[in-house]
C-alpha cells in the first residue's frame, strides 16, 4: 500500500490511536501529539505525556509505531520540551470524555513560570446530568490523571480528568 506521506495524513492516521486507559479519546484529541515531521529519513512523532509516571506511555508509543508502519520508518520520541496541560484537550476530545462518563478537566489559567493556580473548589459539572453541585471525594483516582467526584443530584460517583 502506498499511503500519501505528509503531516496531515500522518495526523489523520493518529486519530485511530486511542488512550489505552480511556479508549474513547484519540491521542490527537488528548493533545499529547506535540509534533509530527516528515522528511527523507521518515516520520518523527513527539509525544508529551499527560503525567510523567503514566504507565500507558509505552503502549501508546507501540500503538503509534504500529499504526504508522505503512508510512515507512517511524521514530517516536517522548519529550518534555513543553508541559502537557489539560488545556491541550480539544473541544471534541472533551465531548468524547463526557460521553464516556468522565467529567472533562476544569479550565485552569496557566501563569508565568510554569505554575498554575490549583484549587480543589472548582465547579465540575456531572457528566451524566450536568448538575453543578458535585463534590470532590478524592483528588487522587484509579489512574494518575483522574480524580473522584460524587453527584448528589443523580447519585452517581464519577471521575474527573484532572486539571493539570
Amino acid at each position: 500500500m502506498s499511503a500519501v506521506v505528509n503531516e496531515a495524513s500522518v495526523r489523520a492516521a493518529l486519530r485511530d490511536v486511542v488512550d489505552p486507559e480511556i479508549p474513547t479519546i484519540s491521542i490527537i484529541d488528548l493533545g499529547i501529539v506535540r509534533a509530527v515531521t516528515v522528511d527523507a529519513a521518515g516520520v518523527q512523532v513527539e509525544i508529551i505525556p499527560t503525567f510523567i509516571g503514566c504507565p500507558a506511555i509505552g503502549v501508546i508509543c507501540d500503538d503509534v509505531r504500529a499504526r504508522l508502519a505503512e508510512f515507512g520508518p517511524v521514530e517516536v520520541r517522548v519529550c518534555y520540551d513543553e508541559p502537557w496541560t489539560s488545556e491541550r484537550i480539544t473541544p471534541y476530545g472533551r465531548e468524547c470524555l463526557k460521553a464516556a462518563g468522565f467529567a472533562p478537566p476544569a479550565h485552569v489559567r496557566v501563569v508565568e513560570g510554569g505554575t498554575f493556580p490549583l484549587t480543589l473548589h472548582q465547579v465540575v459539572p456531572c457528566p451524566f446530568c450536568d448538575a453543578r453541585n458535585t463534590r470532590l471525594e478524592n483528588p487522587f483516582g484509579p489512574t494518575l490523571c483522574r480524580a473522584i467526584y460524587y453527584c448528589p443530584t443523580c447519585r452517581q460517583p464519577f471521575e474527573h480528568f484532572k486539571a493539570v
Partner: peptide
C-alpha cells in the same frame, strides 16, 4: 524543582517544569 525549571539544560528544565504541575496536587494533600 522551581530552581531546576530554570536550568540551562533544556531537557532538565522541561522535565522539572512538568513535575511542578503534578506536585501541586501532592502539596495540597
Amino acid at each position: 524543582l522551581e530552581s531546576l525549571s530554570r536550568s540551562a539544560w533544556p531537557e532538565l528544565a522541561g522535565l522539572t517544569a512538568k513535575m511542578r504541575r503534578e506536585e501541586a496536587y501532592h502539596l495540597l494533600h
